[in-house]
């Protein structure tokens, strides 16, 4: 039994050390908002915050996560979808199928926390998640909306 700090609560997880955090979140804790897309840190659908930094949970074994490290998943980003990124996403109707969007939102929230006024180049570098539906320009526009910046290119 291992302890984790997830969305502000200390929880017990009964899984092998090698189990990726993604699958512990999904299968042990029932937090299925964090998605499996590739398992090799390519697509970003599993992005969570570990002590505030965006991390791809599909390649992070439980053995590498300390009990006091703060894990935040999409379910814990805000109590009711009220994080500024979620609000901008709603205002611009960003998602299509939506499967990658939890990862997109977690990546965007982390980017904005680090760079409150990101440039387009910052967004290109910071949002490396894959979306097959093609929401990229809406994601870019929503990040700029949160930042209150008008310097972004036309999307």
């Amino acid at each position: 039994m291992r302890k984790l700090t997830v969305n502000g609560r200390i929880v017990d997880v009964d899984a092998d050390d090698n189990t990726p955090l993604l699958w512990a979140l999904r299968e042990q804790l029932g937090l299925t908002g964090t998605k499996y897309g590739c398992g090799v840190a390519q697509c970003g659908a599993c992005t969570i915050h570990l002590d505030g930094a965006p991390v791809r949970a599909c390649v992070l074994p439980l053995s590498a996560v300390g009990p006091n490290q703060k894990i935040v998943t999409i379910e814990g980003l805000s109590p009711n979808g009220s994080h500024p990124v979620q609000k901008a996403w709603l205002a611009l109707d960003v998602p299509q199928c939506g499967y990658c969007q939890a990862g997109m939102i977690m990546s965007a929230a982390a980017l904005l926390a680090e760079k409150p006024k990101p440039t387009d180049a910052d967004i290109d570098a910071g949002i490396t998640n894959i979306c097959r539906c093609g929401t990229y320009n809406k994601v870019r526009a929503a990040i700029h909306q949160v930042a209150g910046s008008t310097t972004g290119r036309k999307a």
Partner: peptide, 27 residues
């Protein structure tokens, strides 16, 4: 009109096929 299906895609609450959990389920 705004899409009817956006809100739950922003919070992780929408249950896709891969997310389904049934009592006693195996994988």
């Amino acid at each position: 009109m705004k899409r009817l299906d956006t809100a739950d895609k922003l919070t992780g609450r929408l249950v896709y096929g891969i997310d389904l959990q049934l009592p006693g389920m195996l994988n």
